[in-house]
Amino acid sequence: MAGKNVIEISDSSFEQEVLKSDLPVLVDFWAPWCGPCRAIAPVIDELSNEYAGKLKVAKCNVDENPNTPARFGIRAIPTLILFKDGNVTEQITGAVAKSQIAAAVEKVVS
């Protein structure tokens, strides 16, 4: 299960929760059938706790919400996208080390 600082977003809430967010947003595009997504989930939870108040962390289930991943050309998961002021600042594909995600997050949190 996702951590307490991680929200679930959908195709319908994406605009409001991500593009119009005041805080930078890290979106984890995942699906239940994806092993590396499960592997990376605890890391996403940890980041959501460590950057609480500075970064919004959201998960988007690509099985239930096909439109948002298609909009960003996502054909692989896990894909992590960092948004700031409605723009993509970084897109990371695959299960990567926490330090690599944290380095991308550091660039957008003030």
Binding site: A31, W33, C34, G35, P36, C37, V62, D63, P69, I74, R75, A76, I77, P78, G94
Partner: peptide
């Protein structure tokens, strides 16, 4: 990774 990305 076919299991990750096949369903796309």
């Amino acid at each position: 990774c076919a299991i990750c990305d096949g369903p796309f």
